[in-house]
């Protein structure tokens, strides 16, 4: 069965066209990136504010716990029923799922700054915003990047399942293969999804590695990234 799937993958004609592998891959990546960006715009400021002020920490723990307990498929189908079979429903469901890990990453990044350094920064007369900009954000950058990595992987992964309610992404191969009993399409699609997540994971790990090593150099980048 695996051989049939590899043969399907090796056939160039399966890669081109409007419903070909390339198109699905681009859709998958585009949706993943758009979801992560929208969620980051919502979650990062909140997470940074919670980490900086130390207020409403329970929100982070609660949202992480809720995200873990809430079944993704339930959320996708509920949004699908409410908003119809378009891209909007899975997009919003994915945003909801992407917020908790981003929030947690931003919060624990800022929180990870050494309290002694933060106190010292206040003691030499830095304002609250300066402490955030020059101490907490640079110190928390690697952890925030870790949160981003978790989120990208989770969204790319869940986007596969989102193809259950909408016509986009690599997940389509899995579902159409299942429906028509074409196991080579199903397994071939599954192998593509595995390959995509592994490549993303390794690429983001490498990025994280570089950023951590050159933390001081990239410190300003962390700030302008907001």
């Amino acid at each position: 069965m695996i051989y049939d799937a590899l043969a399907w993958l090796a056939d160039v004609s399966n890669w081109v066209g409007d419903a070909g592998i390339w198109m699905r891959l681009v859709q998958h990546l585009a949706v993943t990136m758009a979801v992560v960006m929208v969620s980051a715009v919502i979650a990062m400021p909140i997470g940074i504010a919670i980490g900086h002020t130390g207020r409403a920490r329970a929100l982070v723990t609660l949202s992480s716990g809720a995200a873990r307990a809430l079944p993704t498929l339930g959320l996708l189908t509920l949004f699908g029923l409410a908003l119809g079979i378009g891209l909007t429903a899975p997009f919003l469901a994915l945003v909801v799922l992407a917020i908790p890990p981003l929030l947690a990453g931003a919060y624990s990044g800022v929180e990870s700054a050494d309290p002694a350094t933060v106190d010292a920064a206040y003691a030499i007369g830095m304002t609250s915003m300066q402490v955030l900009r020059h101490v907490e954000l640079p110190a928390g950058f690697p952890i925030m990047l870790g949160g981003l990595r978790t989120t990208v992987l989770q969204v790319a992964s869940t986007a596969t399942l989102a193809a259950y309610t909408a016509d986009f992404g690599l997940g389509r191969f899995l579902f159409s293969g299942l429906k028509t009993n074409r196991y080579e399409v199903m397994i071939g699609g599954a192998l593509l999804v595995v390959a995509l997540t592994l490549v993303l994971d390794v690429a983001l790990a490498a990025l994280q590695c570089v950023a951590t090593r050159e933390k001081r150099v990239n410190g300003d980048g962390a700030v302008s990234g907001q």
């Binding site: 992987l153 869940t158 397994i187 192998l191 999804v193 595995v194 592994l198 993303l200 994971d201």
Partner: peptide
């Protein structure tokens, strides 16, 4: 790495 793989993909690959 294992944790990064979507569960749906594993449900289809593991049986074969």
């Amino acid at each position: 790495l294992l944790y990064a793989i979507p569960s749906l993909a594993l449900f289809l690959i593991v049986p074969s």
